[in-house]
């Protein structure tokens, strides 16, 4: 069979599987259940393959027993890597009624390693963001309400404009800083607050949060529709139009 013919069969199988999975939109049915199980089987099978071929073989087995390459380079094996096997096995005690506490040892190691990184992570992530949130909220010039047009100006003139804070920018910066603080206060003071200023801040925070959520919704919709369009393109254009009808 030519590779091009094979591709048609491969796409055909993908189209059939797509239709099978989409059939759930009508109602739960046997065809959907069949492909759902095919999907789970293939995904878990690949996970098994990839964990060995992409990770364990190189990171564990080869380091544990060492390697000898064709060009004569021999790398020693580090026997202590075998100790990870019993530790990993402890995770499987999660299914034992009597000894399931032991599964918390490997999980505790992973969680410990994760939580220990949080201090470093915090400063790396939020340090620059805190700095970027401290914006000038007072104008430095009143020559214009908004930022003037830069068209036809010399680089020096543009640099002067860029170096100033115009009233419109100051207002925008104030809104930015206020939004950060009020949303944060909404999170920190989620209990019933009596202080009027704080109450105003948390209420504003709730409204401003909705702007963030609205933007997230807009982006999410774009993503989900794109994924659907990709499927439709695959079924109708790649397979039907370019694959079947063009032959």
């Amino acid at each position: 069979m030519k590779y091009e013919d094979y591709l048609i069969w491969r796409m055909g199988a993908g189209v059939l599987a797509t239709i099978g999975l989409y059939s759930v939109l009508y109602k739960e049915n046997k065809l959907y259940r069949f492909f759902e199980h095919v999907f789970l089987g293939l995904a878990s099978g690949w996970t098994l393959v990839a964990l060995w071929t992409e990770t364990l073989q190189a990171s564990w087995w080869d380091k544990m027993i060492g390697t000898a390459t064709q060009d004569g380079k021999v790398v020693n094996g580090s026997w202590a890597y075998i100790l990870l096997l019993p530790i990993g096995l402890m995770g499987y005690f999660v299914f034992s009624k009597k000894h399931n506490w032991m599964s918390r040892i490997p999980i505790g190691i992973i969680l410990g390693l994760y939580s220990g990184q949080q201090i470093q992570v915090w400063w790396n992530t939020y340090g620059p963001q805190i700095a970027a949130s401290a914006k000038p909220i007072f104008p430095t010039t009143f020559t214009s309400l908004t930022v003037p047009s830069k068209e036809g100006l010399t680089p020096e003139q543009i640099a002067i404009i860029n170096g100033n804070v115009y009233t419109s920018q100051a207002v925008t910066n104030f809104l930015f800083v206020f939004t950060v603080l009020s949303v944060l206060s909404y999170f920190l003071f989620s209990f019933d607050v009596k202080n009027k200023a704080l109450k105003f801040s948390t209420t504003s925070g709730r409204y401003l949060l909705m702007i963030g959520f609205g933007a997230i919704f807009g982006s999410t919709v774009m993503m989900r529709f794109t994924l659907l369009i990709d499927r439709m393109y695959f079924v109708f254009d790649e397979f039907l139009k370019q694959g079947i009808l063009r032959r």
Binding site: P128, Q129, A131, A132, S133, G212, A215, I216, S219, T220, M222, M223, R224, T226
Partner: peptide, 26 residues
């Protein structure tokens, strides 16, 4: 990043933690 991640990535970009990014189909 994918479309759904654009708003959170914008936060990093605005703080200059990224030199640039492409978000979603746009």
């Amino acid at each position: 990043v994918t479309g759904v991640m654009v708003p959170e990535t914008q936060v990093f970009y605005q703080a200059k933690q990224l030199v640039g990014f492409s978000g979603g189909l746009k």
